[in-house]
């Protein structure tokens, strides 16, 4: 049995969905993932080779049970049902958000970018009130949106656009080493004027990485800055030497006292 992947299968889903719900799979990257295939009792979802192959759907045998919709870790499978006719389609989406969406109530159907497509009635809700389960919501929309719907929302306000502001001129200085408060400008001065060939030497001279965190937090950004300012240096620049204790511990505890 040969199914079709990605948008190739969508035409078939559109055609077959006049008979009832069919799975619309919006997953076309090679992701190591196969639960949809495992979940399909009909054997209608097939990964052609290995678990990285995009799932192919056989729309003829898909019975629209929705098991793949509920389990898909990418939340990338939907159901399309045009069997109700009169220019309407029912689209089922996986849902794990906070809006209060009730059976029989109205909600927004949105596309993949969150754009409003249509307002529609919620005709089915499954898995509600059961933590850990993915809810399946079915919304009724004009048929022309059937392949476009990717989400359902209560009428949540849309985000306002961020304000555009004047470009700032000078780069403000800031503490690069958070513990010892070594400024960014000072650190770069040390790196570019010094003859440091290793992070330990840079650390000893600049004191960056010698505070309470002992460089555990900042070593990777210190390394990036060092390599950015000295691009000719070998990538395998020497790292901080690791010494015990690798986690802070009170000396009194090392001495055998409690606390």
């Amino acid at each position: 049995m040969q199914g079709k992947t990605g948008s190739e299968s969508w035409q078939e889903v559109w055609d077959k969905s006049v008979n009832g719900p069919r799975a619309l799979i919006d997953c076309w990257q090679e992701i190591p993932c196969d639960p949809c295939q495992e979940a399909c009792a009909q054997g209608s979802i097939v990964l052609s080779s290995g678990i990285c192959a995009p799932p192919a759907l056989h729309a003829e045998t898909c019975n629209g049970c929705g098991k793949c919709v509920a389990i898909c870790p990418g939340m990338a499978i939907f159901l399309v049902d045009r069997s109700i006719g009169s220019g309407l389609a029912r689209v089922t989406v996986p849902y794990e958000m906070r809006d209060e969406i009730r059976l029989g109530g109205e909600a927004w159907a949105v596309d993949g970018e969150g754009n409003y497509l249509a307002e529609g009635r919620i005709t089915r809700v499954s898995g509600a009130g059961r933590p850990g389960r993915t809810m399946l919501l079915t919304i009724e929309v004009p048929e022309e949106w059937a392949l476009k719907v990717r989400g359902v929302r209560g009428r949540r306000k849309l985000l306002e656009e961020p304000e555009e502001v004047e470009a700032i001129e000078a780069v403000e200085d800031f503490a690069f080493c958070r513990c010892e408060e070594i400024d960014y400008s000072r650190l770069r001065e040390i790196i570019t004027q010094g003859e440091f060939r290793s992070l330990p030497a840079l650390r000893r001279f600049s004191r960056a990485g010698l505070g309470y965190c002992q460089g555990r937090f900042c070593q990777s950004i210190l390394r990036s800055q060092f390599l950015a300012d000295c691009p000719e240096e070998d990538r395998e620049v020497e790292s901080f030497r690791v010494r015990a204790p690798v986690r802070p511990v009170k000396l009194s505890r090392l001495g055998g006292e409690d606390g």
Binding site: Q29, G74, E113, G114, R150, L159
Partner: peptide, 26 residues
């Protein structure tokens, strides 16, 4: 309010980006 990246394309999987974008997050 948004996801910002210096890269010119989404670094993660499209399906994860899809989940975020359909909630209206730019």
């Amino acid at each position: 309010v948004g996801v910002v990246d210096t890269a010119g394309s989404i670094s993660g999987y499209q399906v994860h980006a899809g989940r975020v974008r359909r909630e209206g997050i730019p």
